[in-house]
Amino acid sequence: MAATTEHLRHEAESPAERLRTNRLGLWLFIASESFLFAALISARYYLLGTERSEHLNQPLGFLISLVLLTSSLFAYRAETAARFGDQRGFRRATATTIALGLLFMVGVVLEWREGLAFFPPSTLYGSAFFTLVGFHAFHVFTGIVALALLLWAGRDGRFGPENHWPVEGVIKYWHFVDVAWVFIFPTLYLVK
């Protein structure tokens, strides 16, 4: 015996209502995740105040920030294209976003290689630096995986005006990860 609940659940809820519920859920998730980054950022200030390492590669830090912020522009284009049913535009913009995300990750690897030499995790600044960047990079990584899944699932052109929530959700998450970096970058590189 089996019955389906799907029709029952949606009986009282139009697609537009469901979209609003999904959006609320995502914003709640983002609020929760902000607390995670707040905890890690406050740990950095608690332990070190505004003290920072003298051996940071400032140009590299600036460059990867630029790459990540630019990726949000393409993410936005991907979302808009999906909403208007422009499949080609959606695929191209999503692929570009993924590429920029990967470029950011490469930058993080270079940054870590330099950092390990000057401030290993066994130092106080190293603890804060590798933990914060690591947590953030893990979020970027999950974002890249989600974008790749979108590209894969959407290869049959399923995302369009009627069905753009998965795209919208992932892209909003991507923007959030970007905004988190906007707080982490000055916390690690700029304050003094």
């Binding site: 740990a43 332990l47 290993p120 995790p121 066994s122 130092t123 106080l124 190293g126 603890s127 590798f130 933990t131």
Partner: peptide
């Protein structure tokens, strides 16, 4: 090997 809570490492 981080040193968040170890006084010896600051």
């Amino acid at each position: 090997g981080t040193t968040f809570f170890e006084a010896a490492g600051g």
